[in-house]
Design a protein around this nucleic acid. Sequence first.
DNA 1: GGAGTGATGAAATTGACTATCAAAAACTAA
DNA 2: TTAGTTTTTGATAGTCAATTTCATCACTCC
Lengths: 140, 140
Amino acid sequence: MDRVTVFNQYLRKKGLKSTSQRLIILDAFLNSSSHYSTEELYLSLRKDHPRIGYATVHRTLKLFAECGIAAELNFGDGQTRFEPVHSDHHHDHLVCTHCGSIIEFVEPRIEHLQHEIAARYNFTVESHRHELYGRCAKCV
Amino acid sequence: MDRVTVFNQYLRKKGLKSTSQRLIILDAFLNSSSHYSTEELYLSLRKDHPRIGYATVHRTLKLFAECGIAAELNFGDGQTRFEPVHSDHHHDHLVCTHCGSIIEFVEPRIEHLQHEIAARYNFTVESHRHELYGRCAKCV
DNA sequence: GGAGTGATGAAATTGACTATCAAAAACTAA
DNA sequence: TTAGTTTTTGATAGTCAATTTCATCACTCC
């Protein structure tokens, strides 16, 4: 199902309203390849929509995360980042500590080992975080 | 090599001084099994050493991380935690989202796959983060 | 003892995030 | 459409952990 539809259905289910700001932010968010922080998306939006405030961007990104169309990321730089969720595959991240670029990777064998470890400790996994930090090919 | 020695050598190399506060904090840090935040270690120390300030605890923990005898952890609760580094083995964490307990796990096969992934992208790994969040056996 | 260097700790600052609130906009039902 | 109700917006203020500042303090080496 389309992520715009997911968002609108979530709004209706929760008795929330569909506003122009929310739709503008959703559009900008989905059509970006970046892993935006609130600050970065706010600044990017300000070019075309200077009336949209920081608080609105922040609240809307939290809404995206609540309804499952965005994932919250934290790469240890003190800022929460958001990325659009693709329902078809899960991925983790390589983070370049030099230029800040982010590479996504998929590795089912690691996912499998995670389940194995959880079972070892009778642990029920709800989510996980897996990031490799270092130098990307351009920054060696 | 002893971690106390590592710390003292680091201090000397950097022209820093070996003070009673630093040694007290180091002792408390190494003899704990916890994953302390600055706040928690500060409060714990205050019982026996009420004159040691928060800023000193904070600065000293950062020193530990700099010289490699402590690792900084961040489990998404908004506080940075520190744990003593055991040079002989690397581990990652299971974090219970209900009771906050932390289980350490070791899985060389995942470490191996990480290297494989890094090579795939010509990426030089400096560090990594791998945490599974969910319910521990007691909290199911 | 005195000068020089770095450390300490109380307090102030920073920065990301969250809460507040009056005004504005979106929905709802007649 | 319109009046009434509810939610949203955006500027601002507040919160909290992390960090910095700065006036002493402690140590070392003449």
